[in-house]
C-alpha cells in the first residue's frame, strides 16, 4: 500500500517532467495544443475533486476562471504578476465558499441552476461597472511567453494532482466518499456535511481562478464576453465525465482526446461545436456512465475473469 503510493507519486513526477520538455521539441502549434490540454487538465481534474465524490454538477468554472482573468487584467499595472496568482486563488475560493454556503445545503438541482447562472451574473455586473467607467475591455501587455504560460499551468496541474492525492488520503476525502454514498449516514456518523462540501468546493474555485489569471496574458485583450465564455464550464464537465471521476487521473483521459476532437471540429465545422457537446453529454449518460476509467476497469475485470477460466 505504502509503496504503491510512492510509485504513483514518482510516476506522476516523471510524466510531468516529460511534459515540461514540450516547448523545446514541439513547434508553436503543439505548444498551443499543450497549453489547451494543460489548462483543461487543471480545470477538469479540480472539478472532479469536488463533483466526483459529491455528485454535485458545478457549472461555475467559467465564473471562477473569468474572475481570475480579470484579477490579472486589473492588477497587472499595479502589482507584480506573481502576487496576482494567489490573489486570484483567494478570490475564487471566497466566491466558491459563498456560493457553497448558499446552495450546498440544498439538493443538486438548485446547485446546478445557481452555478449555471453564476458566470452570467458576474459578467453582467462587470459589464455594468465597465459601462460606468467607460472602458470596454482591458489590455494585458506582458513579456510572458506561451512557454511560460505552459510551464505555469503544468506546475498548477502538479499541485492539483498532489492536492487531490493528499485529499484522497485525508479525513476530508474519506468524509466526502461517505457523503457521496449516503448523506444521512454521513451526518449521523458525525460528519459536518455542509462544511466538508463547502471546503472542498473552494478547491476548484481557487484553481480555476488561478488558471484564469495565468492565461490572461495569452489573451492580450480582455473583455467580459471573452473571459466569461459559458462554453468553458460545459467543456470541463464533459471532459471530466468522459474521462471518469472515479480516479484522480480519470479527467486527464478525457481531456486529451476531447481537446483533439474539439480542435478538429472547430477547424472544419465551427458551427457544430454545440452539437458535439450535446452528443457527448448523451454519449456519457447512455454509453459511458463511468467514463473511460469505468470502461478500462471493466475491460480489465473481464480480461482477468477470462484468465481465471483459462
Amino acid at each position: 500500500m505504502k509503496r504503491d503510493a510512492w510509485q504513483d507519486l514518482a510516476l506522476g513526477a516523471v510524466l510531468l517532467a516529460v511534459a515540461a520538455c514540450l516547448p523545446w521539441f514541439g513547434g508553436s502549434y503543439w505548444l498551443s495544443i499543450g497549453v489547451t490540454i494543460a489548462m483543461y487538465t487543471v480545470l477538469a481534474t479540480s472539478w472532479a475533486l469536488f463533483s466526483g465524490p459529491t455528485h454535485y454538477i458545478s457549472l461555475a468554472t467559467t465564473a471562477f476562471f473569468g474572475i481570475g482573468t480579470y484579477t490579472t487584467g486589473l492588477g497587472i499595472d499595479h502589482l507584480p504578476y506573481w502576487v496576482l496568482l494567489p490573489i486570484a486563488g483567494v478570490l475564487g475560493a471566497v466566491l466558491a465558499g459563498l456560493v457553497g454556503l448558499a446552495t450546498l445545503r440544498l439538493s443538486g438541482v438548485y446547485f446546478v441552476i445557481f452555478t449555471l447562472g453564476l458566470a452570467e451574473l458576474v459578467r453582467q455586473i462587470i459589464t455594468w461597472v465597465q459601462n460606468f467607467s467607460g472602458q470596454k475591455g482591458l489590455y494585458v501587455l506582458t513579456d510572458i511567453t506561451e512557454a511560460d504560460i505552459y510551464w505555469q499551468l503544468l506546475g498548477l496541474a502538479g499541485i492539483v494532482f498532489l492536492g487531490g492525492w493528499a485529499i484522497g488520503r485525508s479525513r476530508l476525502g474519506f468524509a466526502l466518499r461517505i457523503i457521496g454514498d449516503d448523506e444521512t449516514v454521513a451526518r449521523h456518523s458525525g460528519i459536518n456535511t455542509a462544511r466538508a462540501k463547502v471546503i472542498l468546493f473552494m478547491v476548484p474555485g481557487a484553481v480555476a481562478a488561478i488558471a484564469g489569471a495565468i492565461l490572461a496574458p495569452r489573451y492580450v485583450y480582455i473583455e467580459p464576453l471573452l473571459a466569461f465564455t459559458p462554453m468553458l464550464s460545459f467543456q470541463v464537465v464533459i471532459m471530466a465525465l468522459l474521462g471518469g471521476t472515479g480516479r484522480l487521473w480519470g479527467p486527464l483521459v478525457g481531456v486529451i482526446p476531447f481537446t483533439f476532437l474539439w480542435e478538429a471540429i472547430s477547424a472544419s465545422f465551427p458551427n457544430q461545436t454545440t452539437l458535439l457537446l450535446g452528443l457527448c453529454f448523451l454519449l456519457i449518460v447512455y454509453l459511458l456512465p463511468k467514463g473511460f476509467v469505468g470502461l478500462i476497469e471493466s475491460v480489465r475485470r473481464w480480461a482477468k475473469s477470462r484468465e481465471g477460466y483459462a
Binding site: I57, G108, V109, V112, T274, L276, L277, G278, L279, F281
Partner: peptide, 17 residues
C-alpha cells in the same frame, strides 16, 4: 437527478446545434 440533468443538457445542446 444527475442523469436527467446531463441528458437534458445534451438535448439542449443538440437542439441548439
Amino acid at each position: 437527478e444527475v442523469d436527467a440533468i446531463l441528458t437534458t443538457f445534451g438535448l439542449s445542446f443538440v437542439a441548439v446545434g
